[in-house]
């Protein structure tokens, strides 16, 4: 078990290293740096001004050296400015290098860098935004998992029945509707004066501070709808399969009540497959919220990713990638370990 865990963690570190280098390389391509300079300086700067901007701020150097500095294995740059002052990676612009400035300041030293769009430390931005998305995901899970499981079990216990057909239609419909469609429809019906119901709010901006049913229900439902249908389909398939097993038939022949068969004999075995699917929903949610967060103006992790990518915010994008790798691999790890407990026939060691 320990060896398995260690192997998984090593894979995770290696993946993070490769992915961040790819992101780093792409964000450091010349056109992207020009874009960064124009966003930081003035959007109508001349080419000469862009060049001098990039040189004085340490962008115009070898990409491997810059990546090493970001990692914290190479000392941060110090560049003298045209007016005699110095700029460095590890300190603010000053007349001379401050004596207490560290030589290394990268991820290894716990310094995630500085976001050029938000003008703040990357660490604190990611923490705040991840917290907001966690709040959204928590409520999505609360709505999605129980409703999906109930739908799936009800549909799967009598395969081919009228309940099965109608519930399956509902789940296929909801999983076939992407968020950008269902979100717009929900807003139009429940939040705008176009239909006139106006029961809920079409924006979740105020939910960041104070989430209420009124301002938070629509984004939660929009995300949950898609996942509900998907998990319900998986649960139904798994349930239907279990219901054809020999031991279920034996139980029925022995005269056990149908209700007891479903709850006591079939349910636990039917939940193994949906468990993996639910775990896989976490990484999907983390990135799937991009659309919903943008649509509802909820400024969480997905929205941060859009802003960072749109503005070529190098260090923020890197941190976002690291977090994403971490979430994907950790949830996979949990689902692997969880499998062992749900199904004694499987072992990871």
């Amino acid at each position: 078990m320990l060896a398995f865990l260690l192997r998984r963690i090593a894979v995770m570190l290696l993946t993070a290293l490769c992915l961040t280098f790819v992101v780093f390389f792409l964000t450091n391509l010349q056109p992207n740096l020009e874009k960064l300079a124009k966003a930081e300086g003035n959007s109508r700067m001349t080419d000469a001004e862009v060049t001098s901007f990039l040189e004085t701020r340490g962008y115009a150097r070898n990409v491997f050296v810059k990546y090493g500095e970001w990692l914290g294995v190479l000392p941060g740059f110090v560049i003298e400015q045209p007016d005699g002052s110095v700029r460095g990676r590890c300190f603010e612009r000053a007349d001379s290098v401050p004596p207490d400035a560290p030589a290394f300041c990268g991820v290894l030293q716990g310094d995630w860098g500085y976001s050029s769009v938000f003008r703040d430390d990357v660490g604190s931005i990611v923490a705040t935004r991840l917290g907001l998305t966690a709040k959204l995901m928590f409520w999505v899970m609360v709505v999605m998992v129980p409703s999906a499981l109930i739908l799936g079990v009800l549909a799967g216990m009598r395969e081919g029945s009228r309940t099965d057909r109608s519930l399956s239609t509902v789940s296929i419909l909801s999983t076939a509707t992407p968020e950008y469609v269902s979100g717009v429809i929900l807003i139009a019906v429940f939040a705008s004066s176009a239909v006139g119901l106006r029961w809920f709010k079409g924006t979740a901006a105020s939910a960041m501070e104070n989430a209420t049913l009124e301002n938070f229900l629509l984004p939660v439902v929009t995300i949950a709808l898609y996942g509900t249908g998907y998990i319900a389909r998986m649960t139904r398939a798994s349930m239907a399969e279990v219901m054809t097993q020999q031991y279920i038939r034996t139980a029925r022949l022995k005269g056990v009540r149908f209700r007891d068969i479903v709850l006591k004999h079939a349910l636990r075995n039917a939940l193994i497959a949906p468990f993996t699917v639910i775990m896989l929903q976490f990484p999907w949610l983390l990135n799937g919220v991009v659309i919903v967060e943008t649509l509802f103006n909820y400024k969480g992790f997905g929205w941060t990713l859009v802003q960072a990518a749109g503005n070529n915010d190098i260090e923020l994008l890197l941190a976002v990638s690291v977090v994403s790798v971490f979430v994907v691999l950790v949830t996979q790890l949990i689902s692997d370990i969880g499998y062992v407990y749900l199904n004694p026939r499987i072992s990871v060691a």
Binding site: A191, S192, K201, G202, T203, A205, S206, N297
Partner: peptide, 15 residues
């Protein structure tokens, strides 16, 4: 953001 639909939603939601 830059989507006018969101601005309208903000006005309608009294935000």
């Amino acid at each position: 953001g830059s989507d006018p639909a969101a601005w309208l939603a903000a006005l309608e939601s009294d935000e």
